[in-house]
């Protein structure tokens, strides 16, 4: 289904309304909360654009790591947590840190692309 205006267009319009029209009329804590609300909408916009590919990649990595061929990303992530808790999977397990790093990078590109820890993880000499 392709509906126009798309969810991304609607959310962007609301975010810009908050930013350009609403926030200039606010002050103090309410203005701060409006800024937080804009940030939340920007996260949703990035998630709509990047989320499906990031989720598919995470699912493929989790399936390889756990030797599983069923389950969605959430279920596989739960399974991985369990395996770490029992000691079945640890920092030495091949592929674990690569998966966690790739997932954290994809997550931050959606949640907070300017976060300093992302630049540290993705700089070329950090291998």
């Amino acid at each position: 289904m392709s509906t126009k205006p798309s969810p991304a267009e609607l959310i962007e319009a609301v975010r810009l309304f908050l930013k350009d029209t609403v926030r200039p009329q606010l002050e103090g804590h309410t203005a701060f909360h409006a800024k937080v609300a804009e940030n939340a909408l920007a996260m949703v916009e990035r998630e709509l654009a990047q989320g499906p590919a990031a989720d598919a990649a995470a699912r493929a990595r989790l399936q390889a790591l756990l030797g599983a061929d069923t389950g969605d990303t959430d279920a596989l992530t739960r399974q991985l947590c369990e395996a770490i808790r029992t000691g079945e999977v640890s920092l030495d397990t091949p592929g674990l840190l690569d998966h966690l790093k790739a997932t954290a990078i994809d997550r931050l590109n959606i949640d907070q692309p300017k976060y300093s820890g992302l630049a540290i993880a993705t700089k070329p000499d950090n291998s």
Binding site: N39, A40, L97, K101, R107, L108, D111, Q112, A121
Partner: peptide, 27 residues
């Protein structure tokens, strides 16, 4: 409930990134 409280839930990924960087160094 507040927009501030729900949004800070997405800052969890910042600490996950920092922890991955620290674990990578430790490994």
């Amino acid at each position: 409930p507040s927009v501030e409280r729900v949004t800070i839930g997405r800052r969890v990924s910042e600490t996950e990134m920092d922890l991955v960087n620290l674990l990578e160094r430790a490994a």
